[in-house]
């Protein structure tokens, strides 16, 4: 469950990042359309909220929120580092973590 939460935190950060002109251009060659930008931000907010709920369910509210904070900071760091050195991996890593997270949550 906490791995799935981390995946959501990472994806939220990746979405926030891609909603920014500079980084969207880095990956896709041009800036995001306004609707896409709004969509990415909405997705990020929903994913962060879902991650907080998952962490709280798994660990209790207090510890869950501490873990959530840590996960979203580490997710953001991972996005920043990947973008600097391996930008093509940004989305595949997200898919991988999301898959692993869903698997561990289901099992």
């Amino acid at each position: 469950m906490t791995l799935l939460a981390f995946a959501l935190a990472y994806l939220a950060m990746a979405a926030l990042c891609l909603a920014m002109n500079r980084h969207h251009r880095q990956l896709f060659g041009d800036g995001p359309a306004p609707r896409r930008q709004a969509g990415l931000r909405l997705f990020a907010a929903a994913a962060l909220l879902a991650a907080a709920v998952l962490d709280s369910l798994a660990l209790g509210t207090g510890i869950g929120l501490v873990v959530w904070f840590g996960q979203f900071m580490l997710g953001a760091l991972l996005v920043g580092l990947l973008l600097a050195w391996r930008q093509r991996w940004l989305l595949p890593v997200g898919a991988l973590v999301a898959m692993a997270g869903s698997l561990t949550a289901l099992v």
Binding site: L16, C17, G80, A84, W85
Partner: peptide
């Protein structure tokens, strides 16, 4: 916030 994810090695 603008440079939040920016790292240009």
């Amino acid at each position: 916030f603008k440079d939040f994810f920016t790292l240009r090695p």
